[in-house]
């Protein structure tokens, strides 16, 4: 499993879930999507990206032992620390 790296935040741009590549991990700083937060993708949770392809509408992300299919528009609202 890769460490918490992924695409570093450039000046003025916050990192979000879509910035993680396959195998990379991150910690959620905030999630403006209430539904996904209630399902387990809430602030403080460590997430791992399992599948992120620009051509696909959804990504597969893990939080703890749960796995989620998350649409890209929602993943964009999930900010990483």
């Amino acid at each position: 499993m890769k460490s918490e790296t992924g695409t570093p935040a450039t000046a003025g741009k916050t990192r979000n879930l879509l910035d993680l590549q396959d195998g990379e991990t991150g910690r959620i700083r905030s999630n403006r999507d209430r539904k996904s937060a209630e399902m387990g993708l809430f602030a403080g949770v460590r997430v791992t990206m399992f599948r992120n392809r620009k051509s696909e509408h959804s990504v597969v992300v893990g939080a703890g032992d749960a796995r989620f299919l998350v649409s890209r528009p929602i993943a964009e609202h999930i900010e990483l620390a």
Binding site: L41, R67, S71
Partner: peptide, 11 residues
Amino acid sequence: AASAFVMELPP
């Protein structure tokens, strides 16, 4: 556009 969704994948 298709509405966004999040869904759990059970093991």
